[in-house]
Amino acid sequence: MVSDGPALAGTTPGGQPVRFPGFDVLAQVDHWDPVTAGVVLARLSLPSPLRFFTVAEEGIAGALLDHLLDQYEDPRVPVLQMIDVRLTEKQTDGWHYADLPEDGQAWRDSLRAIDDDARSRFDASFTECTGEQQKTLIQAVQDTEGKPWHGMRADRIWSLWTRYACTAFYAHPWAWNEIGFSGPAYPRGYKNPGIDAREPYEVRDHLPIDPTRETS
């Protein structure tokens, strides 16, 4: 069984399983159909070397994604590599805005744009900026909303970044461990749907902090 290694059991991004202690979605892999298991387990393998992003883009995109997903500690979901694969393979969502190029070019253009922002605002490249400075620059893009930003609508770039980031991160079983999601359920299905009902292998939320009531 893949999940037997102590280093892997119940892994969460950043290594802090706070809310669902001991929950390990990979402990159920023997109950998944082989095709699904193959697709999910492949995400645990060593990521392929970058092919889409240039070295300069790698530095900017890596830092940007760390901030967007609050990923500063290992083990990390390799979102940069996952996005690189998608862009290399031109695996888009099947549309792009009329006022933006296709996704790959929009990524390149927007990474260059935020690097330009760093140079004009902090007199340093984006990768040379401090984490706080980088966050300030990212927040400024979000705050620009539907207005133009380096010839692009900022909200559409924001949506491009977050869409690719979230799709990669929440595809990973470590992220499922963190949020208590049981993942694939074929051919077994679920036996206990309903409010406050759990499968035998599901773990109760041990720290049910209402995010709408808490600010950090």
Binding site: D70, T162, A175, E178, I209
Partner: peptide, 16 residues
């Protein structure tokens, strides 16, 4: 509009 730590905190609350 949630991103970063804020996004992760909301997402950890998925089952609710």
């Amino acid at each position: 509009g949630h991103w970063g730590e804020d996004l992760r905190r909301y997402m950890r609350d998925y089952v609710h």
